[in-house]
């Protein structure tokens, strides 16, 4: 089997257009982080300003490359619908966090959380229940 890149067909010893764009995007990213450090650690204000200008250029070119890849359908971060699903999911988890925050004030539920963590997930409920009971009795003694 010949080597195939995950999304675009790549012929032997040749990068696909997508690979090239990805490489330049990754290079831009690493240069941007280099400039970030350089800005923070520059002594001379003119040098810092130069680095800031270069950094701004990197940000612009990263945005441009990303937009082009997005237009060509080369950069999949998921469709709009799945973005909506992700948003809904994050809302759900937010409400769950709130619940956990409330539950933290009651002893038993934090116990059960601990036991769930110990038993490696909530799939084995009977085991966690018994563990919960035993840990509670330990706590009482």
């Amino acid at each position: 089997m010949a080597y195939r890149s995950s999304n675009t067909p790549t012929s032997r010893n040749r990068l696909s257009d997508r690979d090239m764009l990805l490489d330049i995007l990754a290079t831009t990213k690493s240069m941007s982080s280099l400039y970030d450090h350089a800005i923070l650690e520059s002594n001379d204000s003119m040098v810092r300003e130069t680095f800031e200008n270069l950094q701004q250029d990197e940000h612009h070119s990263a945005e441009m490359i990303y937009n082009i890849m997005q237009e060509q359908g080369m950069y999949n971060i998921g469709s709009r619908q799945s973005l909506g699903q992700r948003y809904r999911k994050s809302q759900n988890s937010d409400s769950r966090y709130n619940m956990q925050n409330i539950d933290r004030y009651s002893h038993t539920s934090s116990r059960s959380q601990l036991s769930r963590k110990l038993s490696g997930g909530a799939t084995n409920t009977t085991a966690s229940r018994s563990r919960e009971l035993s840990s509670q009795t330990n706590w009482n003694m």
Binding site: M31, L34, Y35, H37, A38, E41, S42, N43, D44, V47, F51, L54
Partner: peptide
């Protein structure tokens, strides 16, 4: 430091 950043860049 500035010099080495500039050379890296």
């Amino acid at each position: 430091k500035e010099r080495s950043y500039l050379e890296d860049a």
